[in-house]
């Protein structure tokens, strides 16, 4: 795989420098068997330094997870060597099983097979609260 170019796949650009490995795990990319390139500390006009992840396969990324982790990431969908679409991310309204509630008094701490649900309660400050107990995610 050429690190500079992929034929068909996804390029995650403008990742905050040093954050690419965290993304790699959150997006479960470690479970993929296609070629994936993580490029760290690339020079960027906008950010000074940035990370890039290139995935050499058409995959369905969870954009909500990405938006929650860093809404400034650009998602480039590449087909036949050309950027087909640039997706802008935003903070998702709801998060299902992305983060866990840490309140020991919350029902999520005792009920088996419960979905961990968080909702964006203050979009300005990017605050998410557990749907069950309203504890802020931190």
């Amino acid at each position: 795989m050429n690190v500079d170019e992929i034929k068909t796949g996804v390029v995650l650009d403008h990742i905050k420098a040093g954050k690419s490995m965290e993304l790699y795990h959150y997006l479960n990319l470690d479970q993929m068997d296609c070629c994936i390139a993580i490029i760290k500390n690339v020079k960027s006009n906008k950010l000074g330094k940035k990370d890039i992840i290139k995935i050499d396969a058409e995959i369905d990324l969870d954009l909500d997870v990405l938006g929650y982790l860093d809404p400034n990431i650009t998602v480039n969908i590449v087909k036949d060597g050309k950027v087909l679409e640039k997706k802008k991310l935003k903070l998702p309204t709801d998060l299902r099983n992305v983060i866990k509630c840490k309140n020991p008094r919350c029902i999520t701490s005792s009920e088996r097979e419960i979905d961990h649900l968080f909702r964006l309660t203050s979009p300005e400050e990017g605050i998410y609260r557990c749907v069950y107990c309203e504890t802020e995610s931190k």
Partner: peptide, 10 residues
């Protein structure tokens, strides 16, 4: 009534 927060919502 439940000691855990959010149990009735669940």
């Amino acid at each position: 009534r439940h000691p855990k927060e959010g149990a009735p919502l669940l």
